[in-house]
Structures are given as structure tokens and as C-alpha cells.
Measured scan of single mutants.
Amino acid sequence: MQRVNMIMAESPGLITICLLGYLLSAECTVFLDHENANKILNRPKRYNSGKLEEFVQGNLERECMEEKCSFEEAREVFENTERTTEFWKQYVDGDQCESNPCLNGGSCKDDINSYECWCPFGFEGKNCELDVTCNIKNGRCEQFCKNSADNKVVCSCTEGYRLAENQKSCEPAVPFPCGRVSVSQTSKLTRAETVFPDVDYVNSTEAETILDNITQSTQSFNDFTRVVGGEDAKPGQFPWQVVLNGKVDAFCGGSIVNEKWIVTAAHCVETGVKITVVAGEHNIEETEHTEQKRNVIRIIPHHNYNAAINKYNHDIALLELDEPLVLNSYVTPICIADKEYTNIFLKFGSGYVSGWGRVFHKGRSALVLQYLRVPLVDRATCLRSTKFTIYNNMFCAGFHEGGRDSCQGDSGGPHVTEVEGTSFLTGIISWGEECAMKGKYGIYTKVSRYVNWIKEKTKLT
């Protein structure tokens, strides 16, 4: 034993070699072989497995989906700052455009905790909710729209109204504003409101030439003092309507412009014939205590009207009353817009006519005020429907199939267009061939041609 100890002390290297040989010859039971080890760690190889990531292109799944990435790591994937920024906006807080917040056709661009709407022409605001041009839906104005110097929408209202708090709607500024039905039992019968379409306001006024200088022999019209197929109006439903009495009662109609003036057809009036105007009328054979009678003290036909040349060209006249009318729910003026808007309103496509005229061709006159909704007829169809001249200051309205029309005794009465609950004068009943005849239409004086003249002559002093 002493000898062994001496050998170990003198030859430590020998001992180490012996131990190493023993270990190498022993069977290893701690580690699995290569094949079995792979069965336990069965993990798919990654895209760049075996390579240094710093030297390969980034992978979106590896960089940002398996674990949260930084902007720089995302930049490695896209290799483009702009594309990385677009991805980053949604990656950080989701897609803010998912709810489609942009209105009126706006395009949404996502941002971090926010979004941006790219608005089409005519709109602005956070969600493109603000109209900035009158060309689109009248700028959301209830009545009139004008573009300011910086191309912003400025709404306005006709006389007797003021802008509401929203700067879009119009509200009454006087007790009985024009064009409004205020009798409670008839307010439910107000005709369907007309909503502004998209309009090209630059070209809204037709490029028409008034044929002022045409000389033409007097034409022989049949029954051209021209509501057939209409309905009984309720008291106060058309408070701007008046009836004219002269040699015979209810020979023509008219509309209240203001307390002192009536507008009617020029062919209705004769110099030297006494005319009485009755406002607030409903049943011409009954006294309903809503009527107001006034005498006409002055007749002003349009300066281009000449019955000797043509009885229905420039067929418009103004009547001055001896005493002002007292405005109330049964006696209310009709609204008159400017030339541009009167023309736009007419193009809405349908209007209402009213009167006490004959209820059928050569038949009896109506006792109760009649009204009828009539569609506008395109000019080409209008011209083809008659052998008589249709001037540019006239328009056609009615039904091709016949059966409904204005008729004798309705002449001078109103053709009105309702705009968001307020009625505007767009025409004056003038003439036609018979009444409600198939293929024939009622012919009306186009008020847009005469609004400046009306307003100039009827100013209240």
C-alpha cells in the first residue's frame, strides 16, 4: 500500500490518463441519441435557420407576430419608411378606419389613436360632414345658397324668414311668412316636400332668348283662358290664391305678392273693366268669414305684352289694390325667389296649380277651390304637342294621358313649387288646347323671366 501511494504521488498524470480511459469505455446513459432527441424537440425550422439574422431580410411573422416588435424591426421587413409607417399605425392600436367614419364618399386613412378623412370636392370637416359648395344638395341650405369668396357655403332665406341657429334652416321672422300653410287642420295635408338634388348652379339658368321682337298675326285659340281631375282644397291650404270678379264672377285667378299687390295673367284683364279681388276665398257660393274683398285701382301688364300681336306672350300683369290686405292664416303671400332659384325650383319637376275653373272641358265651374299636382314636361315634348308657338318664356306641365289639367277660369292662378315646406311661385296658368285632352298640356308663363320686374313694381313704400 505504501508503494502504491508513492507511485500516485510521483505520477499524477498517469492516474488522470487511467481515469479518462475508464470513462470513455463506459456506456453513456444520461444523453439520448440524435434521433430520439429530435422526437422530443420537434420544432419547425425557421426561415433563416442556421444563418445569422443580421444578414437576412426581415420576416413579418418572425419579427412582429411571434413577439412584439419595434418600429426598427418592422422597418427591416418593409425596407421602406412609408410602408412601415402605414403598417405601424394599425399594428400599434388597430384600424381606426374600420367603422368607416368618413361621410359623403370620403376616404379614410388610419393613424395612431386617430384617423384622417380625405374629402371629395365640396366637403370638409373631420368626417367630411361639412358642405362647402352650393353645387351639392344646395349646400344643405333649406332655401338659398351662395358661395363666399373663400368658396364656403353661405345660406340665406327669402323675405319674412331668418336663418336658424344651425345656419342652414329657415324659420319665420314674421307672423305670416310667405308660402307657408298655417291653418292647423290643413298642415297635415301639406304636399310632399321637395329635397334639393345635386345641381350645376353655374349652368342652372337656361341660355334662352326671349323672342321679344317676333311679330306674329293673332292666333285663334280655343278655350285658351284655361282644375280638371283635381281635388277639393281645404280652407287655408292655398292662402296665396285669390279669385278675380268682373263682368262675371271667378273669371280668373291670381296670387298675393304682398298686402297691396296681386300677380295674374295679362290676358285676364281689360282696361276700363272694374275688377274686384277676393282673398281668403274657399267656396265661392258661401260666406265663410275668411274672405277679404278689395278693388283694383291700377293694372300693370308687362311692358312687352301686346294682345294685338299675341294674347299669351309675356302673359303676366300686376294688380294694385285700393287697401292693403290683412295677412292671416287664410290670406298669405306666395314666396318669389330670384331668377336663378325660381328656375331651379321649376326644374324640380312638379308643381301645384289651383283655381275655381271648370271641372271638365266646357263644363261647370268649381264651387270649392280645386288643386292638382302636375309634372313638368320637357321642352321637346311640349313643342311636338301643339302647332302653336311655345315661346321661351312659357313652359308645359300636365299629363300625356289627359284627364287632369287646369281649365277655363283658372287662368292667372299660381303654379307653385314647394321647397322644404315653403311654396314659391314658378308659373302662372296661361293657356292650353281644350282641357285635359290626351297628348295636350297646360301652358304656363315662366315666372323666372319676370321676377325682377315683379319685385321692382310691387315694392311697398
Rank of each mutant, 00 (worst) to 15 (best):
I262E: 00
G105I: 00
R180A: 05
L346F: 05
R298W: 03
F395T: 02
N166I: 02
R358C: 04
G363M: 08
S156I: 04
Q219F: 10
A265Y: 01
N222G: 09
A308Q: 14
K362D: 13
G230T: 14
G413Q: 07
D378V: 03
C108L: 01
E82W: 04
A266V: 02
R180I: 04
N313W: 09
E73T: 08
G432Y: 10
L19W: 08
F55T: 15
N203C: 03
E165A: 06
G351A: 10
P235Y: 07
D131M: 09
L24N: 03
L163T: 04
L372N: 12
A307V: 08
G253T: 13
Q167K: 05
C335R: 01
A207V: 09
C141M: 00
C335P: 02
N295M: 08
G58S: 13
E320W: 01
I334E: 00
I300V: 12
K39R: 12
H289L: 06
Y330R: 09
A308Y: 12
V30D: 14
R83W: 05
G125D: 00
V447E: 00
Q370N: 08
I300Y: 06
V202S: 13
V447Y: 01
W240T: 00
Y441E: 00
R373G: 04
T445D: 01
L32H: 15
H361F: 08
Y22M: 13
L460Q: 11
G58Y: 04
G230C: 13
P301V: 10
T225P: 09
T16P: 06
V331N: 02
D378A: 09
G122W: 02
P44F: 05
D232E: 14
D410S: 08
R3Y: 09
L383H: 14
L369G: 07
A164Q: 07
D150P: 10
E124W: 03
F251I: 13
V181E: 07
N59T: 12
V242T: 03
V447M: 07
I300R: 03
S220W: 07
S169W: 06
S406E: 15
V257M: 03
L244Q: 01
W356E: 02
P239H: 01
S49G: 13
K293F: 13
A164C: 04
I297H: 06
D110H: 09
K339S: 15
T218A: 06
R83H: 15
G125P: 00
L24G: 04
C396F: 02
L130V: 15
G179I: 01
N203Q: 07
G402H: 06
W453S: 00
G272K: 09
G357R: 15
G58V: 13
C407F: 10
Q216F: 09
R191D: 09
S114M: 04
